[in-house]
Computed example of a mutant assay.
Amino acid sequence: MDNPVPVIFRGVDRAAFAVSFAGKLRNAGLAAGLTETGDLVGALEVCTLDSPEAVYWALRVATVRRQPDLAVFDRVFAAVFTDVPQLALNRGTEPPGNRRDDVHVPVKADTERAADGGGLPWATLPTPVAAAVGPAEGPSVPLLRPSALAALAERPFEDLDAAQIEQLGAALRDELTRWPTRRTRRHETNSAGRRLALRATVALSRRTAWEPVEIVRQRPIRRPRRVVLLCDVSASMQAQAAAYLHLMRAFTTVADAEAFAFATGLTRLTPALRQTSPRQAITQATAAVTDRFGGTRIAANLSTLLDSHHGNTLRGALVIVASDGWDTDPPERLAATMARLRRRAYRILWLNPRAGAPGFTPRVAAMAAALPFCDAMLPAATFADLAAAVRHLRK
């Protein structure tokens, strides 16, 4: 009795392999989209994959659409199937100008050896624990379970390293997926609106002898509530500065907020924090603040913001001030500035890293002067406190 024909994909989830192989092709520069991935799944289902050559041609016919993509496909195929015998095809053995892609040289495969997945990501039973593959520019951050992430969120900022702060910053950004809106003075056409759009109704009535057969309705346009954040980066806030930058980036990218950092001067960080890469955004924002870890002038910086052309962004906005309240300016000046801010802003929220300590009272003169003009003062010593503050703002 003849021996059975060896199967290349024994013990492998072919659909998962097709998706993973198409992803590798896209990373290498070949345009393998949903259509190519679907063709690849169908090819692996109907083809008899009893030899490396059959595998090669099934993958190539399903994914390659252009002549220039052959070199990319060959490189990816060779990288994926390094644990099977090499194919003695004519690719790479002839100069590009004399290449004939419709001819291949069949060779014997090592039929005694059946591939079992080798711990590759598309194997049906992958290795339970595998080394995390990170980007080339720096160390990777392993994914944590929700319980471990919640435990990190309860730790003080000074006990966290840069990688943990970046992870918690991404989790904090997920808290802002739903942000409250406000009613504007502009209107839009909507069949469920309660207001009659007179001009549009009259325009339609011209087609029906000036009889308003069709009534056009409209309703107010709603926009996300504007947010302005001011973060204290003085010496007393050194432990909290990195975490608060991640908070500002979350608001900047999700709620289109304006972000400012202040110590002895005021620095606008909105363009830097809108970068796609979190690491690059934090790096640019840190480099932009030249007076960090110095003194603090809260009243002077708030006055500068109110008097600048960015002061109009405070009108009807939710203002968040993250500071411990230590200020070198007189408390009377801070009280007068906060009164101006109170008349212009929608709400003022003060985040104080020391507010969560047992028996805390605002004994600092500047904090006591600013507190009557704030709608709320919340603790902000951990990422759990910041997430609670975000949930408080969404109400």
Rank of each mutant, 00 (worst) to 15 (best):
N3K: 10
P6Q: 05
R10D: 06
V12I: 14
R14D: 10
A18N: 14
A22T: 14
G23V: 03
A28G: 04
A31I: 13
G33S: 09
T35E: 06
A43F: 06
E45W: 08
C47L: 05
A54Q: 13
R60C: 10
V61S: 15
V61W: 03
V64S: 06
R65A: 04
R66H: 10
A71R: 09
V76R: 09
V80P: 00
D83K: 14
L89T: 12
L89H: 04
R99A: 13
R99M: 08
R100E: 07
R100I: 11
D101S: 11
D102C: 02
V105K: 08
K108E: 03
D110E: 15
D116W: 11
D116R: 06
G118R: 14
G119Y: 00
W122D: 12
P128F: 05
A136Y: 08
P139K: 06
A153D: 10
E154G: 07
E154F: 00
P156N: 04
F157I: 06
D159W: 05
L160R: 03
E166Q: 02
G169H: 02
G169L: 00
L172E: 02
R173M: 13
L176F: 15
R185Q: 12
R186Y: 01
E188N: 07
G193N: 13
G193H: 09
S205M: 14
P212E: 02
Q218L: 04
Q218R: 10
I221M: 11
R223N: 08
R223L: 15
V233F: 07
Q240H: 15
Y244K: 03
A250R: 11
T253D: 06
A255D: 12
D256S: 15
F262L: 04
A263P: 06
T264N: 15
T267Q: 01
T267C: 04
T267M: 02
L269P: 14
Q275V: 09
Q280G: 05
T283N: 09
D291Y: 01
G295D: 14
T296N: 04
A299L: 03
A300F: 09
S303G: 10
H309R: 13
N312S: 09
A317Y: 08
L334E: 01
L334R: 10
A335N: 04
T337N: 09
M338G: 06
R340C: 01
L341R: 06
R343Q: 08
R344E: 09
R344P: 05
R347K: 13
N352M: 13
P358S: 07
F373K: 00
C374R: 01
P379V: 02
A384P: 02
D385L: 05
A388R: 06
